[in-house]
Design a protein around this nucleic acid. Sequence first.
DNA 1: CCTGCCAGTTTCGTATGCAATTGGTCTGAC
DNA 2: GTCAGACCAATTGCATACGAAACTGGCAGG
Lengths: 236, 236
Amino acid sequence: MMGPGGVPGEQQGGAGAKRPGRSAADRAYLVVREAIASGRLRGGEPVREEQVAKEIGVSRTPVREALRRLAAEGLVELEARRGARVARFEAEEVDEIFSLRVELESHAAALAAQRAGADDVAKLAALCEEMREAAEAFLADPCAGLEAVTDLNNRFHAKVLEVAGNRRLASVVEAVVQRALVERTFHGYSADQLRRSCRHHEEVVEAIAAGDPEWAEAVMRTHILAGRAVAKGVAQ
Amino acid sequence: MMGPGGVPGEQQGGAGAKRPGRSAADRAYLVVREAIASGRLRGGEPVREEQVAKEIGVSRTPVREALRRLAAEGLVELEARRGARVARFEAEEVDEIFSLRVELESHAAALAAQRAGADDVAKLAALCEEMREAAEAFLADPCAGLEAVTDLNNRFHAKVLEVAGNRRLASVVEAVVQRALVERTFHGYSADQLRRSCRHHEEVVEAIAAGDPEWAEAVMRTHILAGRAVAKGVAQ
DNA sequence: CCTGCCAGTTTCGTATGCAATTGGTCTGAC
DNA sequence: GTCAGACCAATTGCATACGAAACTGGCAGG
């Protein structure tokens, strides 16, 4: 193998030659996260530093960093000297996560209703509309994939948090929400459930536009509790 | 300097030879955290990896890990290639943190009231009593220090979260609460405020013992909002 | 047959070295 | 006097090396 330092520019060796702009640690983070979200890595499975490192063509150092980040988010569990394992989403865990989302995001919706400006409302409405279109496209042709839907869903929720104006609240939700889980949940949605989810978003926008925090909070609570009901079914 | 690997057992060289049981990364984490909590490191100040490493007698690797952990908790801010700086707790930030605590911990108190068993209540009551004694000891002789008080306060809040039975809620609060800030806040308490804080704890226990979630939630909300009012004054 | 012990192997935790980037400063031109 | 460009020092990001703990298998003893 190459000596300390290696060949200067040679870093994109393996199959993981992705975004040159991102750091190796970021790439490792994204790769492992994606593997978990897609189900390629199952709950309870160990994640070996060296294996991941080899797979994406970096050393163990950035992989370690990525695993610590994932552990902080609860996606993997670390045990000293025993490495990382993919966290299990047992039904109980799913319940905990969604129960937290209920409290945090409904509170965020209430704050958003108090603070939103016209441009915020317009942006939220646009995201809603796009998501509805993406959902209909998916329902018409499932080959289209759910990526667009999940992405717009994430952006909608993120925008509500942004409008709420508490950055720390946003980062906590970001940390706890486990998009991996949310994405899996979407796969479990029926057509009706998916459409209902879109309608919930629309009603959230309406409540925010009306500047009615209680309404916004109630709708968001409804929305997430409905999601929880589906998610309980897809826990592994 | 010694070659790669160095002298086998030589690790406790510097002044940081503290707990042999903890890993170097843990020690680095605790040292930096303590430096921030005590005010030795001020907001905005850079934290250099090598400097910390030398100070506690380890290499940069565990220090890096510690800094990432602190960044995940919001105690320091990282910029790529530019290192870590101690996060500023502006008044606005303090407000955000305490606003989150209000929502999360009052919810936890409500859950705890629904789930607590007799032994949980006894444990909470004992922590309360100990804290009251520690507080009185401190008020009688300020040289006694606030460490015991802050420690018992932390343990009380942690116990409420534990009884609430949502581990993820507990870990989110743990991540967001910034004990560093809470500890600084205690230093700003007057005698009356400190005693009131103890009384709040006692009333939380009473509400939990009564199995009254709404009461418990309301008391905890009161307790944390009272803390917020003081904290706003000690933001740097 | 089951249990405890030992050696080999695997994997983590940490130390160290090199390359790249960034920020500051110095010089020179306008 | 001010600004642009280039050099230099400081510092991070990553790769690699090594020691130590934990898991594995086999073997001996009960």
